[in-house]
Structure formats: structure tokens, C-alpha cells
Computed example of a mutant assay.
Amino acid sequence: MATTHLLYLHGFRSSPQSTKARRVGERVQAKHPGVTWWCPQLPPSPSEAAALIQQGVADWPRGQMAVCGSSLGGFYATWLAEQAGCKAVLLNPAIDPARDLAGYIGEQTAWHDPDERFFFRPEYIGELRALQTGPLTRPERYFAVIAKGDELLDWREMTGRYPGAQIRLLEGSDHALSDFDQHIDAVFDFLELAPA
């Protein structure tokens, strides 16, 4: 069944202005204009982000929706896909953000607008732990693009989290997947969006 609703979740300190989010959005609008596309600005609080996501997709058809997430957004995408039973595309997904973001407590700047600041609170670590999901219930619903050249996350940990999933393991690249244009076709092939 073709995907009619697509959610994109950005990473930590990122926004809907990220290159990957914009590329995916542009392609959806150009080639799949009938598909519902949503790429929200996620709040710093993981529990608030989860509530926003749940609210936003509450009336989406579970069998025809998909989620794409980058970095911390990949962690959220996994949580949502396990809840909703939908397809998920993960781009260098964060595996243990409660551990990895513990060093970022305090004031942070937004990646795409350094004038925009937010405070990453200590209690957010517990909120991240609460969203951690167990082993994948249906690994075939997942497609991960993972870069060995990721300077922030360990590719071995990322691949180890998604046994049985379709994995596109890149020899180089980086955390931002600067070469994303080379992989966007594979992402869209997996998503099987409804044709225009």
C-alpha cells in the first residue's frame, strides 16, 4: 500500500531548515504532491516533542504513513514507528541520546540560526530514557542510512541497533550526510510514496 503521509523529524539543535529536511520536502512536493508532508520544529523537551508528534499524526492512517528521522530525529522516528507500526527511514540515527546528550545540558544555539538559543535541561535526559524502545518488532519496516565517517555517532552501534533492517552502510560521508543527494533515491524507493 502506497504511503500517503510522511513525517520528517530533525536532529538535536537542528530544524526544518536542515538540508536533508528541505531536500525531502522539495521532492515530496515536486513528485508526490498528493502526499501529506509534515516537518515540525521540535521543542527541546523530549516529552513535549513526543506529545507534539503524537498529536500531529493522531488521525494519520497507520498503514499508509511513514516517518523519516535524522540523528535525534531517528531516535524519535524509531519510537514512533514501534508505536504506530509504520515504515521508518533513519539517517545516522541516535541510539542512546540520554547518554550522548548528557554533556550538552545548559544553553545551546540552534544550528541554522545561532541567534536562536534554547536551554537543554537536566530532566530532558530522563525524558529521553522514557522514550527508549526495545528490540524492533518488525525490522523489515526500517531502512537506515549509516555513515562510517560519522564524527558524532558510532556506526557499529547504529547498525547493531537495527538487526534485520535494510541498511545502507556508507564507507565515508559524515554525520550530516553531506552526500545525501546520492542516497535520496534509495530513501524514496523504500518509502513508496503515492504517485502524483
Rank of each mutant, 00 (worst) to 15 (best):
Q54K: 14
W60Q: 07
D115Q: 14
C68N: 02
E26T: 14
A84W: 13
I105P: 03
H183Y: 11
V57P: 02
G25N: 12
R23F: 10
D174G: 08
G74A: 07
V24F: 11
S71R: 00
T78I: 07
R62Q: 13
P139Q: 07
P195Q: 09
I53E: 01
A88Q: 11
S178M: 12
L152V: 08
Q29W: 00
L193M: 10
F188W: 06
E127A: 12
H32S: 11
S70H: 12
A30F: 09
F190E: 01
L177N: 07
C86M: 03
I105S: 07
Y124P: 00
L191S: 06
I146P: 02
S45F: 08
T159L: 09
P97A: 02
A186G: 12
D181Y: 02
R99G: 04
F12G: 00
A130W: 12
G160N: 09
A84D: 05
F119D: 14
T159D: 05
E48L: 14
H175K: 13
C68L: 15
G56M: 10
Q132K: 15
L72D: 00
T137I: 06
G73E: 01
Q54M: 13
F119T: 14
H10V: 02
A147M: 06
T36N: 11
S71G: 07
G34W: 05
H32M: 12
F75K: 02
R161T: 05
Q182R: 14
G63I: 05
L7K: 06
Q54F: 01
G172H: 13
G149L: 05
N92F: 03
V28Y: 11
W38S: 14
R138Q: 15
L153S: 03
A30K: 14
Q55I: 01
L177P: 06
F75I: 00
D185H: 07
V67Q: 04
Y162I: 02
G126M: 03
D113M: 03
D185E: 15
E127L: 11
L101A: 06
V89N: 08
W111E: 10
V57R: 06
G172C: 02
M65P: 05
E127M: 09
G160W: 08
G11M: 00
K87E: 04
Q41S: 14
E171F: 04
G106I: 10
R13V: 05
A30N: 12
P93I: 09
R168K: 13
D174F: 06
K148E: 10
V145A: 01
L72E: 02
F75N: 05
D100W: 10
K87V: 05
P44C: 08
G85F: 07
E157A: 15
R161H: 00
A94H: 03
T133L: 08
E140G: 01
Q108R: 11
G73W: 06
T133K: 13
R161S: 07
G172R: 15
R27Q: 13
